[in-house]
Design a protein around this nucleic acid. Sequence first.
DNA 1: TGGAGTTAGTTAGCATTGCTAACTAAATTG
DNA 2: CAATTTAGTTAGCAATGCTAACTAACTCCA
Lengths: 141, 141
Amino acid sequence: MTERASPPAVADRLHSAAIHLLRALRREDRATGVGPAKLSALSVLVFGGPRSIGALARAEQVRLPTMSRLVAALERDGLAARTPDPADGRASRVHPTARGRSVLHRGRARRVEALTRRLAQLPEADRALLSRAADLIEGLT
Amino acid sequence: MTERASPPAVADRLHSAAIHLLRALRREDRATGVGPAKLSALSVLVFGGPRSIGALARAEQVRLPTMSRLVAALERDGLAARTPDPADGRASRVHPTARGRSVLHRGRARRVEALTRRLAQLPEADRALLSRAADLIEGLT
DNA sequence: TGGAGTTAGTTAGCATTGCTAACTAAATTG
DNA sequence: CAATTTAGTTAGCAATGCTAACTAACTCCA
């Protein structure tokens, strides 16, 4: 067996852990009735501010047609709206609606709650470790 | 701002980190031509040993029909096989084929390559921290 | 021991979310 | 101004979730 802390071993186990974590959280996400991809895009709009569909696609690391469809769905659901870009007739700016903000915040609270319950049972030191790990993981990409 | 190591704060950042990590790794997974759900199930079979479809569904936190279809696909691809459970006529045991093992190991190598390069640049202590974090995350669910 | 209920798995059908290919329309560039 | 690039859309496919409804086998108990 490869050493547990060797780069490939850590990469693989992190990958597994991330998959299982998100699967567990997906249940909570489902309660919003919005779907993870739309919720994530909405989150970028709410916390990162309005932007074009292309910029949103880059932020979410998906292709333009995928984001085009997600934005259309968000718009249909009344969670986001498009306004034409004054400087570029091809582009539009997407921004969250009031309802979009509200749904996101409620969903986020629900989602975080489930994980929070489990995290709260960990010793403080473990929680600090996970906090540090979250930063390291974000820094990797 | 809530304290960084408070349960809700860690929950939220961990969730974000997991999403972004998986997005980055998804590209690598695609190169195997197998798909993440099948790859993950196959990984359980290879590293955790043969088991029933139901047990596999529980391990992967998906519903029985979803796993039933994944196993059927793995079988069609020649990556896993079913044998009847001698003790229970309803159940079957799923096990990886030689080819399944080989594909998994090659896929694993490919998948971790990109991440491994980055992990390799971290100080040993950070890598150990992430290794520990992976275990903690798995233990949460 | 035989019928009721439970459990394992399948099938069918739907929704979401990825992708590429092919298109339109607007902007840029030589 | 023609050629190219860029933003976005549409269409169509594949993977992967789900629930509902079904079959077959097992278990339990009167």
